[in-house]
Amino acid sequence: MKLYGFAGTRSQRALWGLKEVDADFEYISVNLLQGEQKRPEFMRLNPAGKIPVLIDGDRVIPESAAIVLYLAEKYPQKALMPADLDQRAQVFRWVMFAVTELEQPLWRITRHSFLYPPEKRIAADIELAKEDFETMAKVLESHLDGRRFIVGDALTAADCVTAFLIDWANEVRLIDAFPRMQAYLERMYSRPEAPQRIAQAREAA
């Protein structure tokens, strides 16, 4: 397998899945700062021009959460996807919650903070996005009461997807008021299979 990615981005989430299933893979850096994601050879892999992208034989899988779910299905013995249907449903629920309710406001903050050109940035939307994130973070904070993992008693795809987002939120100081999420973040990144934290990955790039 090959993983096309860039340090400190959602590629870290895909790396987490690969490490948890102990997959043999090659990592290929796509430098976003130099626009390599827009080169024709990469656009043939993902017309959206975004990373990460996983190549597994003839399969081309973009989208970091989809990569984690694919790996969970490919390596059932690693139990990133529970065998029990009720728990599987919960994994799907929390993966979708993460990428819709938590990730989208974080993207809005990032875009209006530095990705958009200055004339397109809207400071008010940053504040609205922070409010949206904090409202949904309360849901996860409550869910984590008495839990080590998001679903069941072991790490699942839901954790690989969500822990990265909590680290992202931590980068912009959005989990200061959520002690369970802070403790969860430390637990997840203390795992030997965990990738580098976002800040560490960016420093090492």
Score class of each variant (00 low, 15 high):
residue 49 G to W: 02
residue 128 L to P: 00
residue 54 L to G: 06
residue 88 R to T: 07
residue 123 A to Q: 08
residue 103 E to N: 13
residue 39 R to L: 15
residue 96 M to P: 03
residue 67 I to L: 09
residue 106 L to G: 02
residue 59 R to S: 11
residue 144 L to S: 03
residue 109 I to H: 00
residue 69 L to V: 11
residue 64 S to G: 07
residue 34 Q to V: 04
residue 104 Q to C: 01
residue 95 V to A: 01
residue 52 P to G: 10
residue 133 F to T: 03
residue 134 E to T: 14
residue 137 A to E: 11
residue 82 P to R: 11
residue 69 L to Q: 12
residue 135 T to H: 11
residue 90 Q to V: 02
residue 121 R to C: 02
residue 127 E to P: 03
residue 143 H to G: 08
residue 99 V to Q: 04
residue 42 F to Q: 03
residue 74 K to A: 09
residue 64 S to L: 06
residue 122 I to W: 08
residue 79 A to W: 06
residue 118 P to Y: 04
residue 67 I to P: 01
residue 73 E to C: 13
residue 99 V to S: 06
residue 122 I to C: 04
residue 82 P to G: 05
residue 129 A to L: 09
residue 50 K to L: 12
residue 51 I to L: 09
residue 42 F to R: 03
residue 128 L to K: 15
residue 46 N to C: 12
residue 90 Q to F: 04
residue 42 F to W: 07
residue 115 L to H: 10
residue 36 E to I: 12
residue 135 T to Y: 09
residue 136 M to C: 08
residue 151 V to R: 00
residue 127 E to Y: 13
residue 51 I to V: 15
residue 90 Q to D: 14
residue 60 V to N: 00
residue 53 V to S: 07
residue 137 A to F: 05
residue 143 H to S: 09
residue 43 M to L: 15
residue 45 L to H: 05
residue 44 R to L: 13
residue 146 G to N: 10
residue 88 R to D: 05
residue 103 E to A: 12
residue 125 D to F: 04
residue 62 P to V: 14
residue 74 K to P: 00
residue 94 W to G: 02
residue 129 A to I: 09
residue 135 T to N: 11
residue 64 S to R: 00
residue 88 R to E: 05
residue 69 L to E: 08
residue 91 V to Y: 12
residue 149 F to D: 00
residue 35 G to N: 04
residue 85 L to A: 14
residue 37 Q to K: 02
residue 35 G to Y: 04
residue 143 H to T: 14
residue 106 L to M: 08
residue 91 V to H: 09
residue 36 E to Y: 12
residue 145 D to T: 10
residue 65 A to L: 11
residue 141 E to Y: 01
residue 120 K to A: 06
residue 36 E to G: 10
residue 82 P to T: 01
residue 119 E to S: 02
residue 143 H to C: 10
residue 122 I to E: 08
residue 70 Y to T: 06
residue 59 R to P: 05
residue 71 L to G: 05
residue 106 L to W: 02
residue 62 P to F: 09
residue 140 L to E: 12
residue 75 Y to A: 07
residue 45 L to C: 13
residue 123 A to P: 03
residue 59 R to L: 15
residue 48 A to L: 15
residue 118 P to F: 06
residue 109 I to A: 00
residue 134 E to A: 14
residue 119 E to Y: 01
residue 76 P to T: 07
residue 148 R to A: 14
residue 146 G to I: 11
residue 34 Q to H: 11
residue 114 F to S: 02
residue 42 F to T: 06
residue 147 R to P: 02
residue 102 L to R: 03
residue 81 M to I: 13
residue 72 A to S: 15
residue 99 V to K: 02
